[in-house]
Simulated assay, not measured.
Amino acid sequence: MNIKDLELFITVAKLGSFSKAAKSLDTRRAHVSRRIAELEQQLGAPLFTRTTRVMALTTSGKRYLAQITPLVSQLNHAGEVFKHRHDDIQGKLRIGLQPFVDKLMDKHIAHFVHAYPQVQLEVFIVPGQHQDIKRLHLDCMINAGEVSKGNIAKQKLMTFERKMYASSVYLEKSSVIETIDDLHYHSLLGFRDTEGTLEHQWRFQQTNVSANYKVICSDYNSLYHFCLGGAGITLLPQVIALDAVENQQLINVLPELSAGFTDINILTPNDTSLSPVAKAFVEHLTDTISINGTANHSD
């Protein structure tokens, strides 16, 4: 249980709706619903009664709301005492983001910019190779996947899971997919990583599938848009497909199958000391993301 969950509960109670709370907090309804359910499980009592039309606080929920509202307010006020130290951090920060990783980091980076008003941030979208750090004189870089050997320090930020997706448009025009063997009769879209490696096989928990690709992309953004446009079936990070799945634009094909998990890391030069600005940025991301959870759970 953390203060973010308590703030979320207070917002839902105030607005009387998961959807309204999600819109207010710029997140997804599924995330709000899951966090409240987990909070109820931790407390051992329901906080809301839910019907198709009405959602209201239970008696326990009303008591809990009355107890935690002043406490959350006091905790937030106490945090303001330390805000002045952020004003001492000033200067320029150059960071690199791998395509699609920017979509995962945008809110965290925006929060950093707000918290450190004296920092000027310059962002580069880079392929994801660690050599870009020195080539572009970056303070740090955030990338997904393996990091080739180099004088680089890395810290894990989050993890995402890859699954199979196709657009509803594509599936309406194609043959039915009931088993993994049916993929041989479909158009597959492939991914080539920053090291130039192409996945010749899709590896799942119990089996592998040889892939004969119709389209090959070197970044997930392009892969996502080709899939959304109806070009075929592909493996995508679950986190960037969630919105389209919610809107029924993308379908999770054979949802019981997973192509495994990949880490997102923040990379920094190992041969130079970090500036105070870079240290503050790395600490900000590692602290806030560890609180908010992994990418595959951040609806």
Score class of each variant (00 low, 15 high):
residue 150 G to M: 03
residue 165 Y to A: 05
residue 139 D to A: 06
residue 148 S to V: 11
residue 122 E to W: 06
residue 123 V to T: 12
residue 161 E to V: 12
residue 160 F to K: 05
residue 139 D to W: 01
residue 129 Q to R: 14
residue 141 M to Q: 08
residue 150 G to W: 02
residue 138 L to K: 03
residue 152 I to N: 08
residue 166 A to N: 09
residue 136 L to G: 06
residue 146 E to T: 11
residue 142 I to A: 04
residue 147 V to P: 01
residue 146 E to W: 07
residue 153 A to R: 15
residue 123 V to R: 06
residue 154 K to L: 08
residue 164 M to L: 15
residue 162 R to F: 07
residue 148 S to M: 10
residue 123 V to H: 00
residue 168 S to I: 02
residue 164 M to T: 09
residue 126 V to L: 13
residue 158 M to S: 09
residue 159 T to W: 09
residue 154 K to E: 13
residue 155 Q to G: 03
residue 131 Q to P: 01
residue 158 M to W: 02
residue 124 F to W: 05
residue 149 K to E: 15
residue 135 R to Y: 15
residue 139 D to S: 11
residue 155 Q to L: 14
residue 130 H to Q: 14
residue 132 D to H: 13
residue 131 Q to H: 11
residue 130 H to L: 01
residue 163 K to H: 11
residue 144 A to K: 02
residue 165 Y to E: 06
residue 154 K to N: 08
residue 149 K to I: 11
residue 163 K to M: 09
residue 159 T to G: 00
residue 147 V to L: 09
residue 136 L to M: 10
residue 156 K to N: 15
residue 166 A to L: 09
residue 134 K to C: 00
residue 162 R to I: 06
residue 155 Q to T: 10
residue 124 F to C: 00
residue 154 K to V: 11
residue 132 D to R: 08
residue 130 H to K: 06
residue 153 A to W: 14
residue 158 M to F: 13
residue 164 M to I: 08
residue 123 V to Q: 04
residue 155 Q to W: 15
residue 127 P to R: 09
residue 124 F to R: 07
residue 128 G to P: 03
residue 159 T to M: 13
residue 163 K to C: 12
residue 159 T to V: 14
residue 165 Y to W: 12
residue 147 V to F: 08
residue 138 L to N: 07
residue 162 R to H: 10
residue 134 K to V: 00
residue 140 C to K: 00
residue 157 L to N: 05
residue 150 G to N: 13
residue 124 F to G: 00
residue 131 Q to K: 11
residue 139 D to N: 13
residue 126 V to S: 13
residue 137 H to P: 01
residue 134 K to A: 00
residue 168 S to W: 00
residue 148 S to G: 06
residue 156 K to G: 15
residue 143 N to L: 04
residue 134 K to L: 00
residue 122 E to R: 12
residue 127 P to D: 09
residue 136 L to N: 09
residue 144 A to F: 01
residue 161 E to D: 11
residue 122 E to M: 04
residue 138 L to W: 07
residue 141 M to E: 04
residue 144 A to R: 04
residue 153 A to V: 10
residue 124 F to H: 09
residue 148 S to H: 12
residue 168 S to G: 07
residue 130 H to P: 08
